[in-house]
């Protein structure tokens, strides 16, 4: 039997909104560690890794490891039926091919349950080694989303370049070119407004903006985003999920031919 209960159900709604455009079907792995997922987009260019630790839930029971294959668009449809203040419970019994989502209003005067069919998914799990990154940028997530959105009206790709001067986001297209430079700024009133750049080596990498824009769907989850880069390695774009875990997106770089 597997059961989790999350009082702040809106977090789960936001998590689904952050991954459903990137991945169609995915296996959720349930274990004593927590509720997790690793899935690639259909072209094997981007990957999303989600971890919600068991300690972050108000109630978490997992008698044995369980993999639940779900269509994320359908799961998002069901979670959309939960109110933003609702408590969400996810339940699955051993040996059944369904999962139940239960939504309780804060005053307990409305209780809904939605049952969804599970599916068998052949998942390709990638082994991602721990890496020391040459440059790590922490910046306001809304600012990063704004930059990706603005640059996608100029071009299809973004060149991200980290130097001692700061981090430069550049795009080029038929109508012209754009450069946005963000400098380190740690002297802000609120820590969530800070931009911190840790650089061991200067790094320049090119990425498809379509994927970067898709990652920024996670912006409502966290005030800050962390972008980790090394030469010739996929970038990691990470959003923390309120003391419970993270969503990490990996994106393979474009290379000059």
């Amino acid at each position: 039997m597997f059961e989790l209960r999350l009082v702040q159900g809106s977090l789960l709604k936001k998590v689904l909104e952050s991954i459903k455009d990137l991945v169609n079907d995915a296996n959720f792995d349930c274990s004593s560690t927590g509720f997790s997922l690793q899935a690639m987009d259909s072209s094997h260019v981007a990957l999303v890794a989600l971890l919600l630790r068991s300690e972050g839930f108000e109630h978490y029971r997992c008698d044995r490891n369980l993999t639940m294959g779900m269509n994320l668009a359908n799961m998002a449809k069901m979670l959309k039926c939960a109110g933003n203040d609702d408590i969400i419970t996810i339940k699955a019994d051993d040996g059944t091919d369904t999962v139940t989502f239960m939504f309780e209003s804060p005053s307990q005067d409305k209780i809904s349950d939605f049952e969804m069919k599970l599916m068998d998914i052949d998942s390709e799990h990638l082994g991602i080694p721990e890496a020391e990154y040459e440059a790590i940028i922490r910046m306001p997530s809304a600012e990063f989303a704004r930059i990706c959105r603005d640059l996608s009206s100029i071009g299809d790709t973004v060149v991200i370049s980290v130097t001692k001067e700061g981090v430069r986001f550049s795009a080029r297209g038929d109508i012209g070119a754009a450069n946005i430079v963000c400098r380190q700024n740690a002297t802000v009133d609120k820590p969530e407004d800070a931009t911190i750049i840790e650089m061991q080596e200067p790094v320049t990498l090119t990425f498809a903006l379509r994927y970067m824009n898709s990652f920024t769907k996670a912006t409502p989850l966290a005030e800050q985003v962390t972008i980790s880069m090394s030469s010739d390695l996929p970038v990691v774009v990470e959003y923390k999920v309120a003391g419970m875990g993270y969503i990490r997106y990996y994106l393979a770089p474009k290379i000059e031919e």
């Binding site: 082994g127 790709t157 996929p234 393979a252 000059e256 031919e257």
Partner: peptide, 14 residues
């Protein structure tokens, strides 16, 4: 002109 690499070029399949 640039070409798109794939994640499987960097990470191994488990």
């Amino acid at each position: 002109c640039s070409s798109q690499t794939m994640l499987t070029e960097f990470f191994s399949m488990n």
